[in-house]
């Protein structure tokens, strides 16, 4: 696993380039905290998903897919602005820090990963300081977002287990960027359950 060097202190908002005013507090001095990478104004544009708004059972989504979030995801995944992995590091950290579980990112096809130059889910977790284990492999390089809804729902198993990885009867948390139809997470979940996992839940940044 690759460990990123500690992120440098950002002085300007990653999204709107407004100067950031870091306040010095005792808590910050004495405990390791993650400084915000974006300004308060940009942060407020993202709309958190309330517990009663969660669309899928066992899937916790952090934010709605509103316009600012669409722009964020575009800049992160398609314009490949890797530093944006730091934008939600605090939220992701808070959700996963105390879990006595195994964190499993949804993988990319190696071909696709070369093309994009980085694994966007891994980077989100790295920035949040959450250790993770890759247990799955993507079989086909075709992306879910390029398929129609029925094609997605009817597709064959998208993943296979990595060789030499034993699945224990314990709790696993899958991590993905966005949940749209839930098919991707369902495929990954059923694979882990079949292999002997006791419980599989998921965390996604966005609910589409």
């Amino acid at each position: 696993m690759h460990i990123n060097p500690p992120p440098k202190r950002t002085t300007h908002c990653y999204l709107c380039a407004a100067p950031l005013h870091h306040k010095i507090t005792w808590r910050k001095l004495l405990t390791p905290t993650r400084e915000p990478a974006i300004c308060e104004k940009c942060h407020q544009k993202f709309e958190p998903v309330a517990p009663e708004q969660q669309k899928y059972k066992d899937v916790t989504a952090l934010y709605h897919y509103n316009e600012p979030m669409k722009d964020f995801l575009h800049q992160y995944k398609f314009l490949k602005d890797v530093v944006l992995s730091e934008v939600f590091r605090e939220e992701i950290h808070q959700h996963l820090k105390d879990e006595q579980t195994i964190i499993v990112p949804i993988p990319m096809h190696p071909e696709k990963q070369k093309e994009r130059t980085f694994a966007h889910i891994d980077e989100l977790l790295n920035a949040a300081g959450i250790p993770f284990t890759h247990l799955l492999e993507k079989i086909s390089p075709i992306t879910q977002s390029s398929k129609t809804k029925t094609e997605r729902e009817q597709s064959d198993q998208l993943f296979r287990l990595k060789v030499h990885e034993a699945i224990k009867p314990t709790h696993y948390i899958l991590v993905d960027d966005i949940v749209t139809t839930g098919t991707t997470l369902q495929h990954a979940k059923s694979l882990l359950i079949e292999a002997g996992a006791e419980k599989v839940t998921a965390l996604t940044l966005i609910q589409g």
């Binding site: 990123n4 314009l79 602005d81 530093v83 070369k114 130059t117 694994a119």
Partner: peptide
């Protein structure tokens, strides 16, 4: 900004100033 590039398997540096025109 620098990142661990999966294409060339080393640390690469990119420009955020003109990123909207393709990195």
């Amino acid at each position: 900004a620098s990142f661990n590039c999966a294409k060339c398997e080393q640390i690469c540096v990119y420009c955020r100033h003109c990123i909207n025109m393709g990195r």
